[in-house]
Design a protein around this nucleic acid. Sequence first.
DNA 1: ATGCTGTTGTGAATCGTTTCATAAAAATGT
DNA 2: ACATTTTTATGAAACGATTCACAACAGCAT
Lengths: 329, 329
Amino acid sequence: MRTKSTTPTIKDVAAEAGVALGTVSKVINGLPVGESYRIRVEDAIRKLDYHVNSYAQGMKAGKTHTVALLIPNTQEPYFARLTYHINLALLKRNYRMLLCSTDYNQAAEQEYITMVQQNKVDGIIGLTYNPELTIAENIPFISIDRSIGPHVPCVASDNFAGGQMAAEKLADLGCRHVAFLRIGSSLSNEPNKRKAGFENGCLARDLSYDMKILEDGDSIDEFNDFLMEHMHDGRLDFDGLFCVTDHVAFQVLKMLQKLKVQVPEDVQVIGFDGTRAFGKEEYVCSTIVQPTEDIAEMCVELLLQENLTAKPPLVCLPVSYGHGWTTRE
Amino acid sequence: MRTKSTTPTIKDVAAEAGVALGTVSKVINGLPVGESYRIRVEDAIRKLDYHVNSYAQGMKAGKTHTVALLIPNTQEPYFARLTYHINLALLKRNYRMLLCSTDYNQAAEQEYITMVQQNKVDGIIGLTYNPELTIAENIPFISIDRSIGPHVPCVASDNFAGGQMAAEKLADLGCRHVAFLRIGSSLSNEPNKRKAGFENGCLARDLSYDMKILEDGDSIDEFNDFLMEHMHDGRLDFDGLFCVTDHVAFQVLKMLQKLKVQVPEDVQVIGFDGTRAFGKEEYVCSTIVQPTEDIAEMCVELLLQENLTAKPPLVCLPVSYGHGWTTRE
DNA sequence: ATGCTGTTGTGAATCGTTTCATAAAAATGT
DNA sequence: ACATTTTTATGAAACGATTCACAACAGCAT
């Protein structure tokens, strides 16, 4: 009469093995149990094809072994890469990942956060551009690329060093007149430091530099206008460009092509992120590579870390240069 | 004395509102309740900032409102796109998505499937190349791009029509001698039908065609060898190529460049998938576009559909042609 | 008033784990 | 052998929501 149609519970296992519930629980959780008991329980588990009900477990423990990733989408390469590595980092620690793609929808973002209060996840790793976002003190939250508040640790690349590196690389490659092209500057976040680093690097290496900064809502075409303003006799004033992201670089490259400016002969271009074609081929342009895997590891590490007081407000991880076809070497 | 440090439960709400537990439960679940009661309960919920504990809910209901997506990774564009749209389709129905990136690790895949038995998710949508994969009858599973068994519905593009469309498009563009380049043919899955469709299209339009098919483990360089074999007097024998995926097309394009074969002047190339640069820019090559959004919708629809018997074994969705720079128009 | 329906609110029992105070058994000392 | 300490197993209670048999009550007819 064992063949109950329902899935077996710990009670069934206990009955099958002829032991108490508590004993089965201990075996499941790897707590010390007499050898003979352990064997009997394990046999029973195998025999009944028993699996713990993680919802019952979760209810009791108040822990879910699940983390939410809040991210605009999984399509843009940088996001896709982050998603992938964070998933892997969580997996390594036997945690599951709930994907919360927000599509830049601020309401959805805030809603996801209330999810934590419903005990669906143990914590959140979030990359969000929502300026309204409020995160209660008691919610374990790690922010990527953006400082939200003193109680929310932020993990990012060393964007200042990245900007500096871009300037230095352009100088090394013989550039004298460079420019920085940037969009989405309104939100105060870590990537904004790329500008300061770049300026710093230009000054150190005695490069003359210009900037074109687009605010939210500005059309990307303004970069085209900017470039045209700096064309004289069919030649561009600049011999080096640093774009705030590879995506911007990609769009700028298309404009340069239309303007018949040769890359990298006439002007060398460096982007930011480390985007690769198909996620695995060569870099789509020369780029400052974000250490995505390290960022992912650090986020997970900090989030799961028990000691809340030891959490640093900001962690910057070192970037590197990735050579693509848009620079000479 | 209301200020218990723990999160409020339904019991606290009942006490605050001065009603019974069952009444609160009804309000939460939108069941009919007297107006005055409803208001009192809703006020109490607001006042206590109460949120249901979904683990307690899940335990009782045996349902989790969560679906697992089993996918090799989220980096390759096609996968990233699928992930994105499936996430959105689930969100629309108020379902959550657990991302299970398997990195082609077959053990991990099978392990994820046992997760369902632990009641972590209500069902699985899976895109897997694991030939060993076994899926118990009682697990709700929808397969993408691969027929696994009669009890597992499969959703895919109409790959046959896609292959045919590629041939017809090449014919329309004036090609006479074409070739099909393909990798990973070992696993019998839906994308394999691209070949049959292409052959069919070539015959219908009287195109002479050749094929180069790489098995698992073969080096991509064999395509290079194939192309070189078909070079005579610096010219390629073919004026049209159909590659099994955009990724293959991308790699082939690099080879053609090295061989100094002009695209699209000397040879026109069509890929498959509909890959866009940065997920949103133009197509990386001319391509047969998979209706990713429709595929996502269909998967979710089928998975959540109650009536198991009405589930079709295979759903093929229509593809379209996407023009990129690798064909003349 | 009394009895009969038809609603609507109530709260004990339940889901499958884990916990922990208690009981039983084993190990140790005298 | 017996008392004492240590180790190990036991199972009732608890976690927080839902269910459902039952109680309470309102409405209506007689």
